[in-house]
Amino acid sequence: MSHHIVEVRDLAYRYPDGTSALRGISFRITHGESVAVVGSNGAGKSTLLLHLTGALKPASGEIRIGDFPVTAKTLPMIRRTVGMVFQDPDDQLFMPTVTDDVAFGPLNLGLPEEEVRSRVREALAIVGAGHLKDRPPYRLSQGEKRAVSIATVLAMSPDILVMDEPTANMDPTARRQVIELLKTFEHTKIIATHDLDLAMDLCRRTLIIHEGRMVADGATLEIMQDEALLKQNRLEKPLRMQGCPVCGFGRPKN
């Protein structure tokens, strides 16, 4: 299905204060691919993701989701196809109860009430948050909030999942749970992250962005072994590739 294809051509964006955030980014992601977007703070990762949902309008260049360019006219369709999970779950959850929040998207799609109910039930069951359905979102733990914010997006049955730092601020177990959950999804996934171990777990392909430019696009395993490239872009090898801190095996000699 061409639905799940994301194509970005020569994308450039400048913030209203004049800061240039993206300077000519191009890539093509095909159906079912899982891609990590990595880079230092302020590299332009979040800005790029916001363009994929049509939340920001490019200064120049083009974005195509499936067969459609992202324009004001196609936005409703784009938002149905692309589900975005924001970095801070508190930005995403705003209704008085978890159920209301998960129902927010499907109701906006104009689905009948029965369908909305069943989607809410299913989405919460997938992320293992069924028991939270009547709780107010602002009283949940960070891990629970993240699970619910993923459910809010799943309830809209998107074809493409876009996530900004899905494991930020989470304890190791909650982080692991999110990773295992994401592994079960067959959507096309685009994940912006600093957690390179997560990128290794979930994504076969990695894009490195630096100062608004794409500096690498390739297999995750290869990129993660290229220490010089990582260092140039203010990144480090994933922890599990860094060798043993006790015996020193596999560690670089200083």
Partner: peptide, 18 residues
């Protein structure tokens, strides 16, 4: 940011309650 998140979930000026 909240408004952007709402728009991403199809918000078009009307909040519906289930």
């Amino acid at each position: 940011r909240i408004h952007t998140a709402m728009r991403c979930r199809g918000f078009a000026g009307q909040i519906q309650v289930a």
